[in-house]
């Protein structure tokens, strides 16, 4: 890409700085912009359906942020929905069976996702490219089968219903609006976290690994270490969004975490844009409400998705975020 042509004569520090500045370095300007964006649904409080969509957008932002983090180290996970499911199931089982408070349940969900990602990552992250994709694909299927066969623990195909709503510090998030505030806060924090992470040397090393593993290794960055870090953290994001989703919908079932959900996350990421913090936000923002346009004609929707996906890959490999860069006079494009 644009970076590699610039990097050859530079050291690692200069390279990563250049990379982060390319899609736009006005972080300070668009944090307030984000806050305004998250505040818009509050004005629509009269229509719970829009609030419902806004909640889903926020949860998808967290979910896709996790996938983006993994992808920035050069790996594409095809079992992202499985980690979402793990977080959801673990949190729900804690809430329903052990009556733990919401905060503990969610923490347990995230912890289970992280542990599973660590164990899985330890053995599969030595695989690259399509091999990694295939092994994660298989793992996603395996997870779904295990949930289906889980008997009383997971409720089998019926899943678990009647999950009590989220409660935090004595406040119950049982209305759509209140849950939106919670989800928006979480989504916002996940974004700020990513912005902060990619300003640290650790974050830069993740990009370095994704961009040119050989070069990164030559400059002393551990590929496996960076990828494990991103895989565990990204899966934690997925688990977190799953735990929230389960407490919002009050329901979990294995079909809510199948391959289609993993593919949907990849579509959001690719269309929004890989390699920047803004991409996943754009992807979730656009792709979550889009199906509503086609609610009674689903085939058309999927055909449109397919065509968009191919067109974006062909003409905007950096995703919609790349439009800005293109307009700004093709800076750095070969």
């Amino acid at each position: 890409m644009n970076v590699s042509t610039m990097t050859e004569n530079h050291n690692k520090g200069a390279r990563t700085r250049a990379f982060d500045q390319a899609p736009g370095n006005a972080w300070k300007a668009w944090i307030p912009a984000l806050l305004v964006l998250f505040a818009i649904p509050l004005l629509l409080a009269g229509n719970p359906f829009y609030i419902h969509l806004a909640v889903l957008i926020c949860l998808n932002i967290i979910f896709v942020n996790g996938l983006a983090l993994i992808n920035r180290t050069g790996q594409l996970s095809f079992c992202h929905a499985a980690f979402m499911g793990m977080g959801a199931y673990a949190a729900v089982i804690c809430t329903v069976r052990f009556q733990t408070p919401f905060l503990i349940s969610v923490s347990a969900g995230v912890a289970v996702s992280m542990l599973a990602a660590y164990l899985l990552g330890a053995v599969i992250l030595r695989l690259q490219g399509v091999y990694f994709v295939l092994v994660t694909f298989c793992f996603g299927e395996l997870f779904r089968l295990v949930m289906l066969e889980g008997g009383d623990i997971t409720g089998g195909a019926n899943g678990i219903a009647n999950i009590p709503p989220a409660r935090l510090f004595g406040f119950t998030f049982d209305s759509k609006l209140s849950f939106y505030v919670l989800a928006a806060a979480c989504a916002f924090l996940s974004i700020v976290f990513l912005i902060a992470l990619f300003k640290t040397p650790k974050g830069n090393s993740l990009d370095a690994v994704g961009d040119n593993p050989d070069l990164a290794e030559a400059s002393g960055i551990s590929i496996q270490g960076s990828q494990t870090f991103a895989f565990v953290l990204g899966s934690a994001f997925a688990g977190f969004s799953g735990a929230l989703l389960a407490h919002y919908l009050g329901f979990v079932s294995p079909e809510s975490f199948n391959q289609h959900i993993s593919v949907a996350a990849i579509i959001m990421l690719v269309i929004g844009g890989r390699g920047s913090v803004l991409g996943p936000i754009l992807g979730a923002l656009i792709m979550t409400p889009l199906p509503e346009l086609f609610r009674s004609a689903i085939e058309t929707q999927n055909i449109m998705y397919g065509i968009t996906l191919i067109l974006v890959l062909k003409f905007l490999p950096m995703g919609l975020v790349g439009i800005g860069a293109k307009l700004r006079g093709k800076k750095g494009q070969p």
Partner: peptide
Amino acid sequence: AGEAVTAANRLVF
């Protein structure tokens, strides 16, 4: 189930 919830929200609200 998840899609049904969104559809129900849309119909009701």
